[in-house]
């Protein structure tokens, strides 16, 4: 792994909630280079969401080390996240403030960071995620589930993050919508060179979207496989049908369910 370009670098990371004998994450080492689309898959309880929360700074490590960007060191137990890395986070649910309009929800990250709010940029962000400017004045309650998820994605981009963290964002939506949202996320990654880290239990999603897939098993096993998916450049529709897609799927299944 090229440590010097790694945006995140985990060394022997341990997280436990009270009982050191039953850690959620055990001795996880992982380097994530800038610009990569990395997906973490694994069964329920393998700690993949915890891993993402550690990277976001929402969960501090009980042991080991996390480096954000080169040189930005945060102590194992202190967990004070480095200020210079801006991360956008999309939760399993839209997590919007129902009393704010779409545009006001987009402004929230800027307000909290005391950044100047540029409505023009935020409005164009709405369009980038597949909403229209006419939706800016609507409240979440007036938007469908899919549109709420898109708005949530736009909010994660509002502070122009260097990394986008996605915690099973498409788990609650139907198949059609999931495919559309997947394409939106991949398009954003490609257009901005945005480092993207996705946690999912959907193998097809992992195989379709990622440059690299890490397979996580419940502790103490940890990371049991780490694939780089080399693919020929194809349009999204072709990519879904490409033979390599099935190869990836088989590799992932084999790693998750060894015979």
């Amino acid at each position: 792994m090229a440590e010097n370009t790694a945006i995140y670098s985990l060394r022997d990371a341990v997280v436990h909630f009270g009982d050191p004998l039953r850690p959620v994450l055990h001795q996880i080492s992982l380097g994530i280079p800038r610009g990569q689309f990395l997906t973490v898959v694994g069964p329920s309880g393998c700690g993949k969401s915890t891993l993402l929360r550690v990277l976001a700074g929402l969960q501090s490590l009980t042991g080991g080390q996390l480096q954000r960007l080169a040189g930005a060191n945060s102590a194992a137990s202190g967990g004070g996240p480095a200020a210079e890395l801006r991360a956008g986070f999309v939760f399993q649910q839209p997590a919007l403030l129902p009393w704010r309009t779409a545009l006001q929800n987009l402004r929230l990250p800027l307000e909290l960071g005391a950044d100047a709010s540029e409505d023009e940029r935020l409005l164009s962000l709405l369009e980038q995620v597949g909403l229209s400017r006419a939706d800016a004045g609507k409240r979440p309650g007036q938007l469908s589930g899919g549109m709420q998820m898109r708005l949530s994605l736009a909010r994660a981009l509002a502070r122009d993050p260097q990394v986008l963290l996605l915690d099973e964002p498409f788990a609650a939506v139907d198949d059609f919508l999931r495919m559309k949202l997947q394409d939106s996320v991949r398009a954003l990654h490609d257009a901005r060179g945005l480092t993207t880290i996705l946690v999912t239990h959907n193998l097809q999603e992992a195989a379709y979207l990622s440059d690299r897939v890490v397979v996580l098993q419940p502790s103490p096993r940890g990371i049991v496989a780490d694939f780089s998916l080399e693919r020929s450049c194809l349009s999204p529709a072709e990519r879904r049908r490409a033979p390599e897609q099935f190869e990836f799927l088989q590799q992932l299944s084999a790693a998750l369910f060894p015979s």
Binding site: G57, L58, F91, A95, L97, G113
Partner: peptide, 22 residues
């Protein structure tokens, strides 16, 4: 909602901001 609290923590909202805005 815990997710909304996480959202405010993610953007390092102060206690005061979390009270007033959330």
């Amino acid at each position: 909602d815990g997710m909304l609290l996480d959202l405010f923590r993610l953007y390092r909202a102060s206690r005061w901001q979390t009270l007033l805005k959330l």
